[in-house]
């Protein structure tokens, strides 16, 4: 479970024009379930996910991971709660690498290198055996129907293919939590349905899924266990 308590994120705090993107959010997100964050642009969905995913620190408030970061910090007991907002950067990075897999709205693939290299990027600093990692990446890409694109440059992929590469990259370190930011924003309806099919598989595999979206295909899906509606940085409803 991920637990947020009075989380605030203010940009340019202390300057003339501070902006509060997330305002006193208190929330419990269940593990191994799909949670959708919906709301208009600027409502704070993406910022909230960057805070949960250890990509930024909140200005105030606490975020606890319950039983999710055991791989990242081996000295923790699996069920132990971990308060992440006060951890040093080194630990945040370890959690980001092991616990979270990110699927970005713009995919954020590194241009000029191959599909396989993109998928392997998160593994480079781990120093794992390259043959084992590559075998894992190839298997994952094959399962996503990208076997023939392994050595192709990512610049030549269609939108749907690029997103599947981003999914393979998010999964390469076998994270417990997958965070997807507006994943269907650049996909047509059929590809969006395909994406939700993949999410269903990951949910069945026990992954915790956090998705921001204002696409009804996502937030009206039967797969969604919890839909959190946000506006002006605050949670307005949980269904």
């Amino acid at each position: 479970m991920i637990e947020l308590s009075q989380v605030v994120k203010t940009y340019q705090a202390g300057l003339a024009t501070p902006f509060t993107a997330v305002d006193r959010v208190t929330l419990s997100i269940p593990a191994a379930r799909l949670t959708v964050f919906k709301g208009p642009s600027g409502s704070g969905k993406t910022t909230l996910l960057t805070l949960i995913g250890c990509m930024a620190r909140p200005t105030s408030g606490r975020i606890h991971l319950h039983g999710l970061a055991a791989d990242a910090l081996p000295h923790l007991a699996p069920a132990e709660a971990l308060e992440i907002t006060s951890l040093p950067e080194r630990f945040l990075t370890a959690i980001r690498r092991r616990t979270f897999g990110f699927i970005f709205q713009q995919f954020n693939l590194v241009r000029g290198i191959s599909v396989l290299e993109n998928v392997l990027l998160p593994t480079y600093p781990t120093g794992e055996d390259p043959r084992a990692v590559e075998a894992r990446a190839v298997a994952r890409l094959e399962s996503l129907g990208l076997a023939r694109h392994l050595r192709s440059s990512v610049d030549r992929l269609s939108g749907g293919e690029a997103q599947r590469v981003a999914i393979a990259r998010a999964l390469i370190n076998d994270p417990a939590v997958i965070i997807a930011d507006e994943p269907t924003a650049h996909l047509d309806s059929r590809l969006s349905e395909d994406f939700m099919g993949l999410m269903s598989e990951f949910k069945d595999a026990g992954k915790t899924l956090l998705i921001t979206s204002h696409d009804p295909i996502v937030y009206d899906s039967e797969l969604a266990d919890l839909v959190v509606e946000m506006r002006d940085g605050r949670v307005v409803s949980e269904t």
Binding site: M55, R96, L121, Y124, P125, N173
Partner: peptide, 19 residues
């Protein structure tokens, strides 16, 4: 700008500053 963005992507994927 592209290089800066790339560094951001690498960090989000679990690269440390030292990496």
């Amino acid at each position: 700008a592209e290089e800066r963005k790339e560094i951001g992507v690498l960090k989000s994927l679990g690269w440390e500053s030292s990496d």
